[in-house]
Structures are given as C-alpha cells and as structure tokens.
Design a protein around this nucleic acid. Structure first.
Lengths: 198, 198
DNA sequence: GTCTATAGGCAGATAGAC
DNA sequence: GTCTATCTGCCTATAGAC
C-alpha cells in the first residue's frame, strides 16, 4: 500500500531520514553533514534520499518545521501540567537540558550559528522557532509578574529573549567544556535570576 | 629583507590572511569558508596560502590564539581604566557589542557550535579562550561581591560562565533577528541581573 | 521507492618552476 | 614567496533502469 506523501514527505523512510539528519545537524551542523552520512546510516543510497528530499535545503526546512512543531507540543504540555510561572520556567529549562543530555545542541541554536550560509526559507523557519519560544515565554513572564511570583526589570519580551538566548549560549559553552551534568541546575538558577523568581 | 617567521607565521601576508579568515569564520563559520575564498580576496593563489598556513587546522589554531591574545589585552585595559566592578562588567559587555556591531559573531562562540567537527588542537584553544574569560570575570565578581557592589547567588565561577555563555547566545539570536542595535543595552541589563548589580 | 552510474563542481593539499 | 598545474576525494544533484 502506498501512502499519500505531503509536500515535506511523511512516509516512514522520510521520517527515518529526518531522525538521522536531525541528530547530525544538532551535533555537527548543517554544513558539516552530507547525504552520504545519512545514506550510510540508513543503508540506502544517496539517490534514494533525493527522492524524499530533492534538495538539502528542503531537508533543512523539514527539519526545522518538525522540530518547531514538537517544541510547540511540549510548551502546551507544560502549560497543562504546571500552573506556577516559576515551575513553568523550570520545565522550560528542562526541555533544553534534555537535549544537551543527549549530547546535542538545540537544532535552531546550531543553525543560528550557520545563519549567514543558509537559504532564505531555512532562515525564516529559524526565526519562527525563536519567535514561538519568545512569545510563549513572554506570556509566562507577564502572568508571573502579575501574580507577584516574578519580578524582573525590563519588558517581558526582552526578558524572554534573554532566557532563550541564554539557554542557547549556556548549552554551547557547556558542550565545549564537556560539562553536561551541571547544565540543568546552573541554567535553572540563571533563568531564575533573569526572571526575578521570588 | 626577509623576516624570521615564527611557528604560526608572523609576516605581513600571513597577518592579512588571518584578518580575512577571521572575518569569514566569524560570519560563516570554519567549515563554511575555503582557502579559495581567502585567496580571491587577497588576490593570490590558494597555493600561496599553504606556504603560510600548511593546513586549514593550523590556520584555525592561529586564528584562535590571536583572538584570545587580543581579548587578554582588552581585559587588561578594562582593569586599568575601570575600578568599579559594575563598570568593568559594562566594559566587558562592550567587547561583545563591538563584535556584533561589525555584523560578526564571537570567533569562539562560532567555533563552539562547530566544536564536534574540529581537530583537537583547535578544541583545546577554544576551551582556553573560555577559560580565560571565565577566570577574569570570576575575579571581577569576587571583588564586586566583597565590595558590596554585586550580590549574586551561587559561585563566582558559575556566574562567570553564565555571563560568558549568555553573551554568546544573545549574540547568536540577535544576529538571526537582525537586531544588532538593541544588543548593547539589553545585554547590559541581563548581565546586571545575573551579577546582581546594586 | 530504490538502485547504478555519472555529471559538474569545489574542497584541501602537493610538486616543482620561477 | 608566489606561481601553474595537478591530484584525490567529497559534495549536491540528476538520468534512467528496475
């Protein structure tokens, strides 16, 4: 039976390609992995990959879109399970800590470093990822300040960007230091400082 | 007259090569520029570059070493010109803001993203850069707390790493947002939050 | 959907003339 | 120190058989 494929390829093979490519981008970067890398891991040929993702740029877009969608789901789950703003921030930090624990960078943090070399559609998708995160955090920060749990200087938006960028940079440096274990508690404290957790 | 060249090449051409390669790494990344890029800008051939820097890895090492040395000089200048801990932190933020104003990432922040793909000697040099920065900041933070100008939770070392990583990440995201202008004041405020500036 | 085969280009690097 | 010429290998991508 043949499934209908969407624009971004939704079959099982395509999904396996995305899984492998995602890990490679998160560890090595978009410009430092090749179709050959993915093909050998999947035990197929490079030509097969081009059937699912005609160009590397389209593969890149699909990667970011899927990653962003998963993040959106995770954010919704945090909102459903935590009511307190401080605890929501802790859970948010946990998303990044889990990524680093897998010895990976955030996909979009990695791509942000390569931003200048990427095609327009990928750039736009990266900005959307950050926009989603900042908007969600700004909401948490606004509510938290109203409820007196948080007391930060500056706007919620600016503070939200500080948290997102901070997490990206702390991951980056922690990975170079080979210091994965301390990330979670340290990042929690730093975020608490930025957000003025009571 | 022929100058004696050191291990890392100290002639004028070598210096021009480093200038061009540095900018390319800071904007595009180490794996996204080539000897051909540098050669065409310098109007020489690729083969000439290999005379000064036999391998790309050696060029990379020389880049990091020079960058780190310049940073060390800048840190010493800050210590000489500012006595107050808060002002020293502001001046430190200024170093990063100046880099971003030139539409560049921090050299070592960029390389940290590519860390997994880099040869051992380059990795070690990157870690030395972060180590230098964290040690210097830890000193400022220790003094600032003793003098009651600063009041942060956690150790000076951890807070120092928070500042370094934070600046790297804020640069990364600001560049993707095309938001160079707001970086300086925002980063100042965020660092002040992390360090507990009175 | 996956394959073989190949195109066309660019990468880092070297040999040897000048 | 810089050049021309060249090597080897990898890259993204395509054509066309099965």
């Amino acid at each position: 039976m043949n499934r209908t494929r969407g624009r971004t390829a939704s079959g099982e093979t395509a999904s396996a390609v995305l899984d492998i490519a995602e890990r490679l981008v998160q560890t090595r970067g978009f410009n430092s992995f090749s179709y050959a890398d993915v093909a050998s891991e999947l035990s197929v040929t490079k030509a097969s990959l081009h059937y699912h993702f005609p160009s590397k740029a389209e593969l890149g877009e699909a990667l970011i879109d899927r990653y962003t969608e998963r993040f959106a789901v995770a954010l919704a789950e945090i909102e459903a399970s935590e009511r307190d703003a401080g605890k929501r921030l802790d859970a948010y930090v946990g998303l990044y800590a889990d990524v680093l624990q897998n010895e990976r960078m955030c996909l979009c943090g990695m791509l942000a470093a390569e931003y200048e070399t990427l095609p327009g559609p990928m750039r736009a998708a990266i900005v959307r990822f950050f926009e989603l995160n900042e908007a969600w955090l700004a909401g948490v920060l606004t509510e938290g300040r109203r409820g007196r749990g948080l007391s930060y200087a500056g706007s919620p938006r600016e503070t939200a960007r500080g948290i997102v960028g901070g997490l990206e940079g702390w991951m980056l440096v922690a990975r170079a230091h080979g210091d994965l274990a301390r990330f979670r508690p340290t990042a929690r404290r730093l975020v608490a400082n930025l957000a003025g957790v009571a």
